[in-house]
Design a protein around this nucleic acid. Structure first.
Lengths: 218, 218
DNA sequence: ATTACTTATATTGTATACAATACTAAAATT
DNA sequence: AATTTTAGTATTGTATACAATATAAGTAAT
């Protein structure tokens, strides 16, 4: 479901949703802050309607919580949430690997390989922002190739939540190079359609990412 | 004066959201159906505003998909989705068990025990609708007691999706009694704060449920 | 001084009005 | 006959208007 261009999708509501979500993830609005519809509306030069609809979606994602007739307060993504998400991924991505290897298309597999090469290129150049983007895309393809709506939805959402953390993690000394190796191992297993090796490689990759993030936290 | 949408202390939007979600899960609106805002609004005796907000939330949950300026069509929950969800639960509930056992409060543990007793009571009486409700509550408490926002959110959502399937499964011969045994084993492990036993018992419970549902499918 | 009770204001919840877009089908052109 | 044009309609997207509720401040009563 790739949406259009720029900061969001086509409709105002969609753009606002993505913008607010970004602002919460990036900490512009911190946990405990209250969001006032009219204020946001004026800030963005739109009416309250699309703002409200965006907020309703944020509510469902748990990024804000709404108290009826009172207002909405930002929940945000806590450090604990992020650690939990890594643990959840560690439990889920083995499943994702199995399904993906069984169902991935030739085109998707090719894309994984291409991404891996590009990752190597940008890793050498130490352009880690680009590596981060490729990383996201890499895993997104795996989620997609599982052909499981529920699994894809969960993992994609979580991936977005931890985007910043992951980028920071990638920038710790040596991590990018190690991460590249892990991605190569994953692709290798995928190419061989080796389910066990793929599961192992992907889970190991998550585990290492997690460890690195935990180091980052202190 | 409330009209059309039944009563309750919540906002119209919230009631409509829950109602539409139910109607999709229960198959009143099937995959491929298109939802027209004005029609729904008239049907429920409200304006388009709360309808739209509810639909935006359904969209985020993936139960409908919206095509800008065109309309929204129902996605629903497919049989494949349900099977996937059981597989996902099998991967996740071990983690849930570990966290829950480490963090559950005395009150929550007591509630699990009480529910288990009630389950036994209603199972004997073969009042399986009641057993189903207790079942939901049982697992909801476990999710809650993990004290993990992300994990709770995922598992709660999925639990709702499979509610009907699970109830049907419970009504197959002998399953209720077996399920009761499994719940007792879970509570026992929780009482002993035995992480390994708890993980095993809960995962085994999911696995058996899944097997039973798969039998149900053919 | 404290409590209870108004009044004022801010904010959300809902309804309606208007604008933009997509679909349909009939009319016009070739 | 086929294609394009165009008018009309249905539906969504956005803005505004109105209603309900909550917060805060000030006033009266004890």
């Amino acid at each position: 479901m790739k949406k259009g261009v720029g900061q969001g999708g086509y409709s105002l509501r969609e753009k606002i949703f993505h913008r607010l979500r970004e602002d919460i993830i990036n900490g512009k609005y911190k946990a405990g802050d209250s969001l006032v519809e009219l204020k946001l509306a004026e800030e963005m030069g739109v009416s309250r309607t699309p703002i409200r609809e965006a907020i309703r979606q944020l509510e469902l994602e748990g990024l804000v919580s709404c108290i009826p007739n009172k207002g909405v307060i930002v929940e945000g993504v806590s450090r604990q949430d992020i650690e939990d998400i890594y643990a959840i991924r560690e439990s889920l991505e083995g499943l994702a690997a199995r399904w993906a290897i069984e169902r991935i298309s030739k085109e998707q597999l090719k894309e994984l390989e291409d991404i891996c090469e590009l990752m190597e290129f940008y890793t050498e150049k130490e352009d880690l922002d680009h590596v981060g983007e490729l990383n996201s895309r890499f895993h997104e393809i795996i989620f997609e190739s599982t052909q499981s709506g529920p699994l894809k939805q969960v993992l994609s959402d979580f991936q977005f939540y931890i985007e910043n953390t992951r980028l920071a993690s990638l920038k710790t000394p040596g991590r990018a190079r190690q991460s590249l190796k892990e991605h190569k191992a994953i692709v290798e297993a995928f190419k061989n359609r080796d389910v066990d090796a793929g599961e192992l490689a992907l889970v190991e990759h998550i585990r290492n990412s997690r460890k690195n993030v935990e180091r980052l936290g202190r």
